[in-house]
Amino acid sequence: MKIGTAKHSYQADEALLTTRPQRLWMGLFALGLCIAPFMLDNYWLYLACLVAINVASATGLNILTGYTGLVSLGQAAFMAVGAYTVGWMQLRLGTPFLLNIVAGGIVAAAVGLLVGLPSLRVKGLYLAIATIAASIILHFVFVNWQSVTNGNSGLTLTPATFLGTPLTDYKQLYFVFVPITALMVLGAANLFRTRVGRAFIAIRDRDISAEVLGISLLRYKLTSFAISSFYAGVAGGMWAYFFRVVTPESFPFVYSIFFLAAIIVGGMGTILGAILGAVFMTLVPELLRFGIDWLTPVLPNAAAMLSPVRTIVFGLLIVGFLIFEPKGLAEIVQRTRRYFHLWPFKK
């Protein structure tokens, strides 16, 4: 049991960060995020931007699947909706960057509401299949709605302009993406301090008693879908400005599975889980590639021989997590924290 954590107000007791070490670590982390772009080379900045995008989308999926218990395999399709919206607005209307991103989120949320309708009747695997069906329909729309999506050749974007500067290199994009993602994560954390977030968890845990408490399943399931796809849409918008080409193949179905795997590996139903999961899923394949690069001097043929092994190792890592740490990376962090609550007095 931890002592010395007494609070004088309920407000302090319900803050997001309640202890001094927590605040300290968070401060250090924020500082690290600020100075990182000056220390990293272009390749790592590229990865950092990609991580920011994936964290935003995974956080959205976590609200829907981790917290509300509605399994969705449509996250990539919602991202595509956001990306196409941003691309179309950028090319046809020339509206400013931030407006486009928000619009991307809103259009994706509207589509998410529609896709979420079956969730009122079906759950679990059945809902997952329904969202897959929705992704396929959306893909069809992207390919065939020539006038807006430009079919298979897709949209090619000009660089985003923010405060008069075109965002062309990764460092500039980093300084825009990371704050957007941070705001979105903060929003998600806030959500679960209020009645809306509690209603989501109630629906996940026991939907019948949620109804007795006055929680409208219709309203909250759809709200959850809308928020989740809003997050995906914003992430997709960032994606569009990042790669600057949006085609129907930019957001393959595998990408949806990527996000589901990310929240499972990270820890479903925790804010930290979505972040850790997205970081893990984005960076680990890269780290494994570095491992192979280091082996090259010793084993001249390492790249050719070990590339398939890399995929296998990545797969094994995920399976390992499911078996040995079913609550995900977030649980490891919690356990470490608990250990240090008593350290060094506990044997």
Binding site: G187, A188, N190, L191, R193, T194, R195, V196, G197, R198, A199, A202, A210, L213, G214, I215, T223, I227
Partner: peptide
Amino acid sequence: KLGRHAHMKTGLLQALAY
């Protein structure tokens, strides 16, 4: 706290911003 749900008013946007 969930018991009070039906008597509370916080909407989605307010919740996100707390």
